[in-house]
Design a protein around this nucleic acid. Structure first.
Lengths: 156, 156
DNA sequence: TTTACTGCAAATATTTTGCAATATC
DNA sequence: GATATTGCAAAATATTTGCAGTAAA
């Protein structure tokens, strides 16, 4: 699916979500969604806000925060807390389930896909818990840092 | 292993860690470690600080933060970011690997053990990544909240 | 005696909130 | 026209930092 098609689709998803709940279709909400879906990587609120401002779109930080909460609720983005103070987000639509490798030496975050593991986890029903989604964060050293022999451990 | 024995053991571990790095064996560090290992649950910095103060031990918040960082570094405690702003911690010594169920309605965190899943994840070696530990956070609704029909989704 | 560590308070970082103005329905 | 949403600034929350005094080695 081409990026432009995805953007159109998620805008429609947001549109129906807002309509269903009688929320308003403000230009800010669609502009922020579009900005997010033009990115290829994880982002944090400040980065997103900066991008909006730099591309000439005037929004307030408060609106960026509000909209991000909304997009998390309607499952168009996923929220992560990788161990730093600030939250990270990523696109959720049309993105395959993946896990995260976090290098505790260089702090890099790499995504890995593992359908088999995904199925195993999805099938679990611990304590009659109604699982909606999950995050698997794997900490350690990436190949590069393992070879370099450095050992600084930041988190966890 | 009895709680008192565990406390003795972790104190010795801390002691050697400090000695190795020529860091100082201050009473605060051991008192904080002892307080942590007397708890049965996850805790956050503010709760820990409150407990120290309430049991008559005078420490500053700064020292609590410093000591927690130290204990994370020497792997006597584990840090979590469950999606709220503040970090949570738990004892690491002698504690079996477990996963976390986080209810997005009532925010409760429940631990579950699953040795089978644990073995599967431990065996993975994605991208030649040198895995030291991992966190699996599962979000959804606990049995109680699923039955209550409430739907507020806070995170993610 | 040296300097790592502590406590305090101020600073920083991130997110939330109150409120008046604005824009959607 | 009613009110959800915005922008702004101030507040709240969580954590870090600078620095003078204290105490471990």
């Amino acid at each position: 699916m081409a990026e432009q098609d995805i953007i159109e689709t998620v805008k429609e998803e947001l549109s129906s979500y807002l309509a269903e709940r009688k929320l308003r279709k403000t230009p800010e909400r669609f502009a922020i969604l579009e900005q997010i879906y033009s990115l290829d990587e994880h982002f944090d609120v400040e980065t997103l806000y900066g991008l909006m401002i730099n591309t000439g779109y005037r929004v307030s930080r408060a609106t960026v925060y509000n909209t991000i909460d909304l997009l998390v609720e309607c499952r168009l983005i996923i929220r992560h807390q990788f161990g730093t103070n600030m939250a990270h987000y990523e696109k959720a639509y049309n993105s395959e389930c993946h896990h995260h490798l976090i290098c505790t030496v260089c702090n890099s975050v790499t995504e890995v896909k593992d359908e088999e593991l995904n199925h195993i986890i999805q099938a679990k029903r611990y304590n009659k818990f109604n699982l909606t989604n999950y995050n698997l964060y794997m900490y350690g050293q990436c190949q590069k840092c393992a070879n370099s022999g450095r050992k600084k451990i930041i988190h966890p």
